[in-house]
């Protein structure tokens, strides 16, 4: 494979919003096509991503320990957590459903938080191993991000339909709010992370871009010419 040409090494920045390639713009100057402030790397990407991830991890505890549903039927009443809901589905023999809910509500959030943790630690450590695999991992994270919201929607519908007056009733409980917050926070953490950091050598992560040189930009060498 030929040598990889990186935008940052040649003062070329792709606008994050519209994709237009700009030559040696000052940090934070506006894209002439769409007006977005351009940055070689998203400002404070790592600290923002960490903040959202840590908040998500903290809320993940009540999301799983607190009940999401409180059901009443005649004289008995019981509470369900996310996990006990999956177990109940399995015991009812609804194996396919149990697997769907288990994947969306338990595997995906854990996978997301674990993968983000891995990406963040690896970038901070300055590791350059397997950048291609880490790039793929990030794209998977972006793609599966919102699927964990499934249980929140399922609970909303259950609560709406099961209103048999005093005979049977289903009430949502605080666990589902914490769970929804975990999904939103992990999505925000993923969006804040700048995947280009996966490929940067460690020293460049501290100082994102050398100041625009005073030379005539037209005199700059074409990065793609041999």
């Amino acid at each position: 494979m030929s040598r990889i040409v990186r935008g940052i090494e040649h003062g070329l920045i792709g606008c994050e919003a519209c994709g237009l390639v700009l030559e040696r713009p000052a940090q934070g100057s506006e894209c002439p096509r769409c007006g977005t402030a351009v940055h070689a790397r998203r400002p404070q990407s790592l600290s923002r991503s960490w903040a959202f991830l840590v908040a998500a991890m903290i809320l993940y505890v009540p999301a799983n320990l607190l009940p999401v549903l409180h059901s009443t039927k005649l004289f008995e009443s019981w509470s369900d957590t996310i996990l006990s809901g999956v177990v109940a589905l399995w015991e009812d023999g609804a194996y396919d459903l149990a697997i769907i809910v288990f994947t969306a509500s338990i595997v995906v959030p854990l996978l997301k938080m674990g993968a983000l943790l891995l990406l963040l630690l690896e970038v901070q450590r300055g590791g350059r191993q397997l950048p291609r695999e880490r790039a793929l991992l990030y794209r998977v994270l972006e793609y599966i991000g919102h699927w964990s919201m499934l249980d929140v929607f399922a609970v909303a519908l259950l609560v709406t339909l099961v209103h048999f007056g005093s005979l049977a009733n289903v009430e949502p409980d605080s666990g589902i709010v914490a769970f929804g917050a975990v999904v939103v926070l992990t999505m925000l953490a993923t969006m804040s992370f700048d995947p280009r950091l996966n490929w940067d050598p460690p020293r460049r992560r501290a100082t994102p871009l050398p100041a625009a040189p005073a030379v005539n930009p037209d005199a700059a060498k074409d990065p793609l010419s041999p």
Binding site: G7, L12, I13, G14, E16, G19, L20, V21, L22, E23, R24, P25, S29, C31, P32, R33, P131, A135, Y138, R139, P195, R196, N198, W199, P217, D218, L224
Partner: peptide, 13 residues
């Protein structure tokens, strides 16, 4: 700002 419409930069790497 000089633009380079003939180029594309990968937003992931």
């Amino acid at each position: 700002i000089k633009v380079r419409p003939e180029l594309a930069i990968c937003e992931h790497c």
